[in-house]
């Protein structure tokens, strides 16, 4: 058996893979938060609840309608995205003229309502979601056995993250979006429907959370608390990365997942807190965050 730093190779790579998976979720969630914050100037506290709704949507599609995993990967984000459009249009849009903190409080209240309703309907013990047949089993990579589904999650998350980056940085829609983030009234003067753009941005960020939720469904049990377990760490990730750059959110998310995985190998007691410790160090050394713009 190969030993690396006194640790068996398969253990190290196994934890690294787990770290990458957590990192994939951090990246997708903090990316959505950053996109929404850039456009709407609110921190979407309901992001964890919407992630959970994505997982539940996949479970419901399977158990009530008989729609499997791969169609759900498209349909669940679409459904949750439509839900996002409705709440942005009816509720969140009323807050744009107020202090940003009200947006935080409102979406916090929203997450309590959503999680409470799901807890009433489905309990908090969690519902199983089967890994699709094609992704069952594991592959021998030579240095370790990789469960196929976990490899798929990392791959899918990377594709989605980099597509989002490409849309925002490389397309004309993305250019309009970035322009509206900088100066909304000016972009509106050019004839762009900015309120619609805002709604679509919110829906997009929310759909990203729901997509992450579907990916998470077979790994964690589908339960009403699955989002709130993640979201506090994701906030630390956002503080570490700073919300200035899309690529920054992606890299910080994956990077911190890996750091967490490595901590599990070398000092397991600290694995739950290591992301927060990194945040403390970043605040001391570079308060605006690794990729943040100067205030």
């Amino acid at each position: 058996m190969i030993m690396i730093f006194g640790v068996p190779g398969p253990l190290l790579f196994g934890q690294l893979l787990l770290g990458l998976i957590n990192g994939a979720f951090y990246a997708m969630l903090s990316l959505g938060l950053a996109v929404i914050f850039g456009m709407l100037n609110i921190i979407n506290f309901a992001h964890g609840a919407l992630f959970m709704m994505g997982a539940f949507a996949a479970w419901m599609l399977l158990n009530y309608v008989g729609i499997g995993y791969f169609p759900a990967l498209i349909l669940a984000p679409l459904l949750v995205g439509i839900f996002g459009v409705i709440i942005e249009k009816t509720i969140i849009s009323r807050l744009y003229k107020l202090d940003h903190l009200y947006g935080l409080l409102l979406t916090f209240g929203m997450s309590l309502v959503i999680e409470g309703l799901f807890r009433n309907a489905y309990g908090s013990s969690g519902l199983p979601y089967r890994i699709p047949d094609i992704l069952q089993g594991a592959t021998n990579l030579g240095f370790m056995y990789m469960p196929n589904y976990r490899g798929w999650v990392v791959l899918a998350a990377m594709v989605v993250c980099f597509s989002t980056w490409a849309i925002i940085e490389k397309t004309s829609l993305g250019a309009t979006l970035r322009a509206a983030t900088e100066n909304a009234p000016l972009v509106q003067a050019f004839g762009v429907n900015v309120p619609r753009l805002i709604t679509l941005t919110y829906a997009g960020g929310v759909a990203l959370a729901a997509f992450a939720g579907v990916l998470a469904a077979p790994i964690y049990s589908v339960n009403p608390n699955m989002g709130s377990n993640f979201i506090n760490t994701v906030f630390a990730v956002v503080v570490i990365g700073g919300m200035g750059s899309i690529m920054g959110s992606i890299l910080t998310g994956f990077g911190l997942g890996v750091v967490e995985g490595l901590t599990k190998v070398f000092y397991p007691q600290a694995s739950a807190t290591v992301v927060f410790l990194v945040m403390v160090i970043v605040l001391l050394v570079r308060p605006r965050g690794l990729f943040g713009k100067a205030a």
Partner: peptide, 20 residues
């Protein structure tokens, strides 16, 4: 049970929207 959470969340939203 969880209706406490739902009620708290709803009050939160009402406070922010109409009752700041």
């Amino acid at each position: 049970g969880a209706w406490v959470t739902v009620t708290q969340g709803a009050i939160f939203m009402i406070c922010v929207l109409a009752f700041r």
